[in-house]
Nucleic acid binder design. Structure first.
Lengths: 136, 136
DNA sequence: TTGTAAATGATAGTTATTCTCATTTAGGAG
DNA sequence: CTCCTAAATGAGAATAACTATCATTTACAA
C-alpha cells in the first residue's frame, strides 16, 4: 500500500534530509540519493527542495560557498558554519530564545515565520590546522 | 591631504554602506554610488565589497531573493527579512547574546568570528496587505 | 483500455558573481 | 619633469547555481 502516487523519489529526498546531519546542498542531496535511485535528476532535487520549503518540511540554513544548504530538522536551533571546510554543524548546547517571534510582533508589528541563528568561524579541526600554519 | 591613493570610489562605497540602513545588495550599492560618481563600474563594487568583508569593515546579512545583502554596521545585531518586499530591517529592540562566542569555543572548540541572527517573515506593511487579501 | 493530473528527465535559459586583462591613477626615485 | 612601480579600475567574458520549459512517464480511476 506504499507509494500512493509517484512519490518514490520525492520521499527518498525528504528521508535523506531527515536522516543526515550534514545540512547538504542540492548537489550533495543529488549525489547521495543517486546511490539509491540512479536515474534521479537534478531538476527533481531542486523542484522538491522548493516544494518542501514551501510546505515547511525543511528549512534553509543559508548560502555557504555559493550554495544554499538545507536542513530536515525544522525545530529552531543554532548552526555553526565553518569558513574553512564549509561544514555546517548543529550546536545543540546553545539555545535560541523563541521569544523573538512574539517580540517581532509586539515591538514592530511584523509576522515572524522563522528565525535563523548562524555562527561563522572555524571548526575544531580547521582551528587546529590554522594554528599549525601560524607556527611555521 | 585627502585621497592618499586612488581610493575615491572605494571610500564612496564604504561611506554609503555606513550611512544607509537599507542593507543593500551589490546592485543597490552600484545604483546609489553611481549618482555621486557616474563612471563607477559593477566590478569595482563587487571587488570592494569582497575586500571590505575580508577586512571586517562590513558584514554579510545573507542572501535575499538571490542577492547577498551587506551591512556597514558590524556590531552584532538582529535583522528582519521580509519575504514579501525583500526589505532587510534592523531590530534594535531585540538583543543578541554575545556569549555564543565563548560557548562556541568552550563547548565545541570552534573559533567564532561572527554571528548572525535573522528573523524571516512579513514586515508590518506586507502583513497588512496580506490580511486584506485574506478578507477578499 | 482510456483519461487524468502530477512527477519527472533532459536541457536550455537566467542571472548574480567572479575572472581576465588592458588601462588609469597616484606617488616615489632619480 | 620623467620614468617606474604597484594598486585600483572598467569593460566584458566566463562561471555556476538555480530556474523554466516541455515532452515523457507514472499511478490511479472511470
Amino acid at each position: 500500500m506504499a507509494n500512493e502516487k509517484n512519490y518514490k523519489k520525492r520521499d527518498a529526498i525528504l528521508s535523506y534530509l531527515r536522516q543526515t546531519h550534514t545540512h547538504p546542498s542540492a548537489e550533495m542531496v543529488y549525489g547521495e540519493v543517486k546511490n539509491q535511485i540512479p536515474d534521479i535528476s537534478m531538476a527533481t532535487v531542486y523542484r522538491n527542495l522548493a516544494t518542501f520549503r514551501q510546505r515547511g518540511d525543511i528549512v534553509c540554513v543559508g548560502t555557504v560557498n555559493g550554495m544554499e544548504r538545507y536542513d530536515g530538522n525544522t525545530h529552531p536551533h543554532v548552526h555553526f558554519i565553518c569558513e574553512g571546510c564549509h561544514q555546517v554543524l548543529d550546536m545543540p548546547g546553545i539555545s535560541l530564545s523563541e521569544q523573538v517571534y512574539t517580540q517581532a510582533r509586539d515591538l514592530y508589528g511584523y509576522t515572524a515565520n522563522y528565525c535563523n541563528l548562524t555562527i561563522n568561524g572555524l571548526c575544531d579541526q580547521c582551528t587546529a590546522n590554522k594554528k599549525g600554519e601560524n607556527i611555521a
